[in-house]
Design a protein around this nucleic acid. Structure first.
Length: 311
DNA sequence: AAAGCGTGGGT
DNA sequence: TACCCAAGCTT
C-alpha cells in the first residue's frame, strides 16, 4: 500500500474541501473535548447549535463543574444519549480537582465518558499526540481502502505523524462527506485510485452490516393538566432525569383529544396521543412549571412535542 | 461481551 | 412510510 501517496492526496483534498465547523476554530482542549463528546453517534449539523450554546453557558471546566446537573441536562435536552452530559460533568469535576486538563492519551482516556476514539481525537487534535482516532467513518474508509473488514491495523499505519490531529480529521471528513455508507461518491474521492474496494466495484461490501433489534410499536397517552399558566410535569418514564407530561393519574378526568405525534427511542416506535385532563389529587413526584421555566429544566423531547400541540 | 442508551435527517 | 445510521461508551 502506497501510504505516503495516500496521505498526500487526502491532505490536499482536506485542505480544499473541508467543512467550516466551529470546533475546528479552537485549540482549547476543553472545547475540543466538549465537541468530541457531542459528536459521539451524532451528526455535525445537529451538534453545531448545542456546541455554541453549551460553551457560552459553560466556557470552561470550572463553570461546568459547579453548575447544577439540572442545568446541564436542560442544555443537552434534544441531543440524546444523556449519560454523555452526566459523564461530562463528572469529568469536569475531576479536571478541576486535578488542576488542569489531562495532556496524555491515558489520562484523557481515564475520564468518564471518554473511550478509545474520543481519547485519541482529543490527544491528537489538542496535544498533537500520534494517536489514530478510529470512529465509524475511519473504519469504513479503511475497510474499503484495504478491501477487507479486517483492516484494523491500517489507520495507525496510515496516521500522519507530522500532524496527527489534522490527519484524523481528514479521514473522518472523507467518511462523512464522500466515502458514505450507502452511496459513496467514488467519483469525487481523492484516494479512489488507491482503493481496493473501488477497483473491484465492491464498495457496498464494506463495512459488514450488523444485525439490529426488531422494532417495537407502542401507543401512549400524555395528559395536559393545567393550573392557570402552569402545567403539571412528572419524572419521565423513558429518559432518566427528565420531566415529561404524566401518562396516567389515578382519579383524573380525561377530556378532549388535542392531537397525535410520533416519537422513536432506539427501536421503540411510539405513537402518542395528547389529551386534556383534570386531576383532584396529583402524584407526589409531580411539579407545576409555567412556560417561563421550561427552558431551565430538563424537558423530555416527548413533552416538547406534546406542548407544541397544546392550545 | 451483548445489550442499552436518543434523536433527527436522508433515502 | 419505513428503515438506515451517525465523530461511541458503559456495564
Amino acid at each position: 500500500m502506497r501510504l505516503q501517496a495516500i496521505r498526500s492526496a487526502l491532505l490536499a483534498w482536506y485542505g480544499s474541501a473541508r467543512r467550516d465547523l466551529p470546533w475546528r476554530r479552537t485549540s482549547d482542549p476543553y472545547a475540543i473535548w466538549i465537541s468530541e463528546v457531542m459528536l459521539q453517534q451524532t451528526r455535525a449539523a445537529a451538534v453545531i447549535p448545542y456546541y455554541e450554546r453549551f460553551l457560552r453557558a459553560f466556557p470552561n471546566a470550572a463553570a461546568l463543574a459547579r453548575a447544577p446537573q439540572e442545568q446541564v441536562l436542560a442544555m443537552w435536552a434534544g441531543l440524546g444519549y444523556y449519560s454523555r452530559a452526566r459523564n461530562l460533568q463528572k469529568a469536569a469535576r475531576q479536571i478541576v480537582e486535578s488542576g488542569e486538563f489531562p495532556r496524555d492519551y491515558d489520562s484523557i482516556r481515564a475520564l468518564p465518558g471518554v473511550g478509545d476514539y474520543t481519547a485519541a481525537a482529543i490527544a491528537s487534535i489538542a496535544f498533537h499526540q500520534p494517536c489514530a482516532a478510529i470512529d465509524g467513518n475511519v473504519r469504513r474508509v479503511a475497510a474499503r481502502l484495504a478491501g477487507s473488514n479486517e483492516a484494523g491495523d491500517l489507520p495507525p499505519r496510515l496516521l500522519d505523524r507530522a500532524d496527527p490531529g489534522r490527519w484524523n480529521q481528514a479521514m473522518m471528513e472523507l467518511g462523512a462527506t464522500v466515502c458514505l455508507p450507502r452511496a459513496p461518491k467514488c467519483g469525487e474521492c481523492p484516494i479512489a485510485r488507491f482503493c481496493a474496494a473501488n477497483s473491484r466495484h465492491a464498495q457496498h461490501e464494506f463495512p459488514a452490516k450488523r444485525a439490529r433489534p426488531h422494532p417495537i410499536r407502542l401507543r401512549r397517552t400524555l395528559l395536559l393538566i393545567r393550573r392557570g399558566e402552569k402545567i403539571l410535569f412528572t419524572p419521565s418514564a423513558r429518559v432518566k432525569g427528565f420531566w415529561d407530561l404524566p401518562e396516567t393519574i389515578p382519579g383524573a378526568r380525561i377530556g378532549a383529544q388535542l392531537g397525535h405525534f410520533r416519537h422513536t427511542i432506539l427501536h421503540r416506535h411510539y405513537r402518542f396521543t395528547l389529551r386534556l385532563a383534570e386531576a383532584k389529587k396529583i402524584p407526589p413526584a409531580g411539579r407545576w412549571f409555567d412556560p417561563g421555566q421550561w427552558a431551565a429544566i430538563p424537558l423530555s423531547t416527548t413533552a416538547k412535542k406534546a406542548l407544541r400541540l397544546a392550545p
